[in-house]
């Protein structure tokens, strides 16, 4: 999910092994992967492993902070004080998740500033789902239900990722994540079961607009994802795109039925032989259009992040300047 564009990134060559120590270290690395063990920050790792993880972890982190924007859009318009508080807390969690993930990324030898720079200059991507607009309050609920629901499915296997700092960050994230899906679903259930016809129409409209992009979150079909085998070996992907997507559909069909909304797919039907739900063809041209920067909100989302960073430059500088002044004064006094 966070590696959507990685499948098309230039293939990186494995550096040639240089000396005997590295051979031993590499054997230890491979043995750790074989035994479902963990790789820690200071352990030897192939350069390609390190680079792949930096890219995945940082894109995951970027997804969290960009993901704050579509929902943050509704905090000042939340319809009750309880919903306002819940949404504030949820968006705050997303900031926290971004932070844990940037911290995990920093253990691999990059810095927060470097990772953010890659985002701001368009070199790094974030999950394409956040390039869609939240047009109504019901969108907030549907994002919780479908988008967080998809994220949870993707994140639970990552808790056993081979790179331990990432795995530990994911454990923390998963603990907080189920609240996110529940609050969204709860908001929708309230509107569908106790709300007015206008509210129900709003929920159905939001579902119609978010369903297909949510399916696309899981990335291209397996036969178009060449890096899957490598990612599986390294434990940074444990279940394939198609398998996760199917799991998601199976769960969502039942959830939609309970809500009383129709999923906008006339080809969606239970397949007794497979024991799963068949679903219609995804328009992958839309997916690639969005991933490549021409979705509904790509430019706005990035501009907001860049502006927030640039507008905050003087603040960060001031905090550092003050810290230095304070340290200098303390030294002078001690002298």
């Amino acid at each position: 999910m966070y590696t959507q564009a990685m499948d098309t990134a230039p293939k990186e060559e494995r550096a040639a092994i240089r000396n005997a120590d590295e051979v031993v270290a590499e054997q230890a690395f491979e043995a750790a992967l074989d035994n479902e063990g963990f790789i820690e920050a200071k352990d030897w790792m192939p350069d390609h492993y390190r680079k792949t993880l930096v890219r995945q972890i940082s894109q995951h982190a970027h997804s969290e902070i960009v993901g704050m924007l579509p929902e943050g859009n509704w905090i000042t318009r939340a319809p009750t004080l309880k919903r306002k508080a819940i949404l504030l807390a949820k968006v705050q969690d997303e900031a926290g998740h971004g932070l844990y993930l940037y911290a995990a990324g920093e253990t691999l030898g990059t810095s927060r500033d470097q990772m953010l720079d890659a985002l701001h200059t368009g070199k790094a991507k974030y999950s394409s789902i956040f390039n869609y607009p939240t047009l109504t309050w019901a969108d907030v609920g549907v994002v919780g239900w479908l988008v967080d629901g998809a994220a949870i499915m993707n994140q639970i296997p990552l808790c056993r990722c081979s790179y331990a700092p990432y795995a530990r960050a994911m454990v923390r994230v998963c603990r907080e994540e189920s609240f996110h899906q529940r609050q969204g679903y709860d908001a929708l259930l309230t509107m569908m079961q106790k709300g007015t016809p206008a509210q129900r129409a709003m929920v159905q409209d939001a579902t119609n607009r978010w369903w297909w992009p949510s399916l696309m979150m899981f990335g291209p079909p397996d036969d178009q994802s060449p890096n899957t085998a490598q990612s599986m070996r390294w434990g940074i992907k444990r279940i394939t795109n198609d398998e996760l997507r199917q799991k998601f559909v199976n769960a969502a069909v039942e959830q939609a039925r309970i809500l009383g909304v129709t999923l906008p797919d006339p080809d969606l039907k239970w397949n007794e032989a497979r024991g799963e739900h068949d679903f219609g063809a995804i328009d992958w041209s839309e997916f690639w259009q969005v991933v490549n920067g021409d979705g509904p909100c790509n430019k706005e989302r990035l501009a907001e992040r860049v502006d927030a960073w640039n507008d905050g430059e003087w603040v960060r500088e001031a905090a550092l300047a003050h810290a230095r002044k304070t340290a200098a004064r303390a030294q002078k006094q001690a002298a």
Binding site: I65, L88, V91, Q92, L99, Y102, A308, D311, G312, R316
Partner: peptide, 8 residues
């Protein structure tokens, strides 16, 4: 929210 000078 989402616009502070630094994530923390």
């Amino acid at each position: 929210s989402g616009h502070a000078p630094i994530l923390e």
